[in-house]
């Protein structure tokens, strides 16, 4: 049984505090849930054109709720 490869991008709503930095950085990649305002991933494998925005969102996320390239930022 081998694990599926980690997606390029993942989010952890449990760690999210709803700052909205990700939505402002990459609105085509991230959303906030209508009921709780916490992070939702719209696209775990965004096209190249959107990856810089997604990386930026990970760097700006205050609570480390965005994981890029299968690893947590920093």
């Amino acid at each position: 049984m081998s694990a599926a490869p980690a997606p390029w991008l993942a989010v952890d709503p449990e760690r999210c505090i709803g700052s909205g930095r990700c939505v402002l950085s990459a609105p085509a990649v991230f959303d906030q849930g209508d009921e709780d305002g916490l992070v939702r991933l719209l696209d775990p494998a965004p096209p190249d054109a959107l990856r810089a925005g997604a990386r930026n969102a990970a760097a700006l996320c205050p609570s480390g709720a965005i994981l890029v390239g299968g690893a947590a930022p920093q």
């Binding site: 505090i17 709803g18 909205g20 939505v23 402002l24 906030q32 009921e35 709780d36 305002g37 916490l38």
Partner: peptide, 17 residues
Amino acid sequence: HDRIRRMLTRDFMVKNI
């Protein structure tokens, strides 16, 4: 902190603002 803050995250999320 998290318990109370999360009662407010919906009101202040980007699309509602």
